[in-house]
Design a protein around this nucleic acid. Structure first.
Lengths: 243, 243
DNA sequence: TCAAAAGTGTTCTTGTTACACCCATGC
DNA sequence: GCATGGGTGTAACAAGAACACTTTTGA
């Protein structure tokens, strides 16, 4: 069974990891006016999960999150922030892991390191949807984006982790300018407003939104975009890095 | 050496703890117009540290923080919230632990569980200063309050943990009514204002502060306090739990 | 009667909300 | 010209800052 080789390599890595500590990433993207989250689908068992992993003894938790993010999206230099640590005694059952391993021919003992209790440090990431190529890991055969309103049932407490991440993201929008990380380098005011409306889940008035954003003094007007549409073409903005 | 008995009992408890995970508590109190933090002073080595501990395999991290808080202050039902997890690879050196144990007659091997890498989940607590009896743990002979502006050098990254806790507390004051937890059950508007001024480190206008607080609709006016001072006695307030 | 601190009122400024209006474009 | 969506202007309202004024007490 050739596919079992990377699995075995992973299982053998147990001693290199910091025990009891895991990292889960809620990767947000924005596409077609939908806020999306990157989910992995497990092979065979058809279970869904957040991209996550373990922390090497020789790296910080931040580095671990950055590494996992890079492995799943192929992108570095991503906006990434820790938002909460989930330390319930029973965060759910590990049957999925056991079944997945079993399907690859590995029957894990109850004491196996992969089946022990882990706390999970939750990170959320904001990425430019167009730059990301979702990549499954060795357990999953599919990595794909899901609308925040259509998240399937996930393993463990991963649904709760997404809820908390979204809550944090909404709080952050208010007093930090994180939203831009979800758009491409240049964008129209309309795109920015749609992003805010989607995340906050409420309509905003165009006129006031524009004034508020421009009053921050960090948006630079690049040029008119000739959209070919039958109306006045919008300006295109980018963030002024000099600020 | 009779004092070494509890130390040995503690060291033997290693296997009952979740590996790699620790909890540190920044306990805030308010007294004489000073924001204070509860610190422990280690025996012999004269080092200072935050109250902290480890997480039993049979408890959640929240429960661990609550337990540690209770052991150090004698108070339950405390406002307690996780604010950040510190997961740097090298959070500082463990010489203090080694020296402390050595002074009790225990020479720890390099592989001893107490000397391994731990991440630390930071919690901050807001307590009623008057109800707290600082209690040292088995390593420390002194638990005492320190003005936030006069924190000594602490072990590991504990100074950074306090900074982050204070930053979080300031953010929280803005959009959550956490401040009351630092006062006794009833308080005057002046006391409440002093608390805000101390935490935010800036003067506020009495008239506007009062209006803002009362407009929240959660303060209940109890009675006049006859202070014996030569001025109009202030009203006494308490939080209206019905809200 | 006076000083001290508590509490209320009033004005001015600022920010937010709502809506009206003008602009550039393709058809 | 006209419909469409982008962009600006402005009045009404709410929130915040600054300061003046009144109230209640002990000495």
């Amino acid at each position: 069974m050739p596919t079992s080789q990377p699995i075995k390599a992973f299982l053998d890595k147990g001693p290199e990891y910091l025990p009891s500590v895991s990292v889960d990433c809620v990767i947000f993207g924005f596409h077609e006016n939908q806020l999306k989250v990157l989910l992995l689908e497990f092979k065979h068992t058809k279970a869904f999960a957040l991209p996550g992993g373990f922390v090497f003894k020789e790296e910080s938790t931040d580095e671990a999150a950055t590494r996992i993010l890079w492995e799943r999206t192929g992108v570095k230099d991503i906006y990434l922030e820790q938002f909460h640590t989930f330390g319930e005694q029973n965060r759910g059952n590990w049957d999925v892991h056991k079944a997945t391993m079993s399907s690859h021919g590995f029957e894990l003992e109850v004491e196996h390191w992969l089946l022990q209790r882990f706390i999970s440090i939750g990170y959320y990431a904001l990425v430019d949807f167009s730059k990301v190529q979702p990549t499954p890991d060795i357990f999953s055969d599919l990595g794909d984006w899901y609308d925040i309103h259509q998240i399937p049932a996930l393993i463990l407490d991963h649904n709760m982790i997404i809820d908390k991440a979204l809550e944090t993201l909404r709080l952050m929008l208010d007093h930090k300018l994180v939203g831009f990380n979800l758009l491409s380098e240049t964008f129209t005011m309309n795109e920015l407003q749609s992003l805010y409306e989607t995340i906050l889940d409420k309509k905003l008035l165009r006129a006031n939104f524009q004034r508020k954003m421009l009053s921050l003094g960090i948006l630079e007007r690049v040029k008119k975009k000739f959209s070919g549409k039958a109306h006045k073409p919008p300006y295109v903005y980018r963030i002024n890095q000099n600020q």
